[in-house]
Design a protein around this nucleic acid. Sequence first.
DNA 1: CAGTGGTCTAGACCACTGG
DNA 2: CAGTGGTCTAGACCACTGC
Lengths: 265, 265
Amino acid sequence: MAINTSSLTDPAALAGDAGAAAGVAPAFSPLYQQIKVLILQSLQAGEWKPGEAIPSEMDLAARFRVSQGTVRKAIDELAAENLVVRRQGKGTFVATHAEQHVQYRFLRLMPDSGDTTSEGPAERQIIDCKRLRAPADIARPLSLRTGDAVLQLRRVLAFQGTPTILEDVWLPGGPFKGLTAERLATHRGPMYALFETEFGVRMVRAEEKIRAIAADEASATLLGVPVGAPLLSVERIAFTYNDLPMELRRGLYRTDTHHYKNDLS
Amino acid sequence: MAINTSSLTDPAALAGDAGAAAGVAPAFSPLYQQIKVLILQSLQAGEWKPGEAIPSEMDLAARFRVSQGTVRKAIDELAAENLVVRRQGKGTFVATHAEQHVQYRFLRLMPDSGDTTSEGPAERQIIDCKRLRAPADIARPLSLRTGDAVLQLRRVLAFQGTPTILEDVWLPGGPFKGLTAERLATHRGPMYALFETEFGVRMVRAEEKIRAIAADEASATLLGVPVGAPLLSVERIAFTYNDLPMELRRGLYRTDTHHYKNDLS
DNA sequence: CAGTGGTCTAGACCACTGG
DNA sequence: CAGTGGTCTAGACCACTGC
């Protein structure tokens, strides 16, 4: 196809809606970047659901009227960002939190033994789940207005009978309308997997701020440690597509038998 | 060139030494992976020093008798691992810790304001620097034998006059022969940059284990906090090329005005 | 076997850098 | 201007999957 000079020179190949949808600012970028954005928009719009296969590289190349190599480079980047997963001989699939091998991508607390399999899955207990109007310090990180409806959830995770994590989670009320404590309690597997299947919200990346703090009375009781015991405070903002914040989470971790693992590179 | 069937089918193109050096186990992998390994070996051998340019893609393609595209894919991966840096129009350069924009790749403690520039560089104070025989718990993570010579270094980092980080660093005695407190004190810039220029050791990646602990008396005094105050304990093992451990570091961070920042993706 | 992603090539042209 | 990395293409073949 023709070399790009401004934005996509030949949007005709598209389904039409994507091109017309939400007057996107013109992108002066390499062709494969433009293709990547188009695929991203389809992912975001739910054209292909988590776990499903996206069209083959040849199909996408035909759809966008570019060479297979260009589509490949676009998908390469999406795969590098963990948005899709390639499987040779089968196809390319929308990534999901339901897969085993990404179980610990967002939970970095490891047993000191290093062996996550031996301790088994965490035992989860929902302490509280309620709707409320967001105070300012909750609303801002979620890009909401003070007073907007949010869902607050409190839970404790235990490993082998020892309560280890106390978490408060805040979710925007709109996208998560209908989430109840019962639904959470009966669900098996990662919370983020439930968010995908029930609410169509896929968490893509997150930022965490980590501090050491002293346990207050409420936390100490729930975690079974003395008041004043050092705890790891982990504040997370999780984002869905387009860097849209969709979750605020404040966790307190016991680190006497576990540690937070991080790889720098 | 011919399709690879076992290992590199045509090693003749090489300078000769690399092919003969250290009977490397045959690599049954794509051509570009083999090229990547060869470039890696040259990096490791110091054929090109940190900050220097490596040969152009065309040159490397000629040297290895493959197409430019294959070399490009090999370099792509090296760049993704932060081992080299590409600069359009100029060339590809061996990555170094002396660059400004990677200053905070291995130091994840950020001021709560988020603005690293406003607080300026850390004030460093060497508390201690001595040689000793490694006890078992120091030797093992460094892949040394108990009793091997190691260098121990203790220092305090302060931000705007407030002591914030207390660190103990252990280095293998062999590669770091000649490192003294004076040399460290007079050096400006990141410690890892000094390791590169003075000892030819480039840190490539690291693993950190993070815990919350209570300050003991010695730590409390040096950091100016009460005994028992919660501190972030950060234990790091840093690796050079080939996953060779080259540094053990145990840090205690005050997190009342700073936090440890981490991005999950 | 056909269809998928994965590798490799050769050649064209673009964008950026520096002399 | 020549030299570098960056993009794009078209076509070949390999490796893997599932029918």
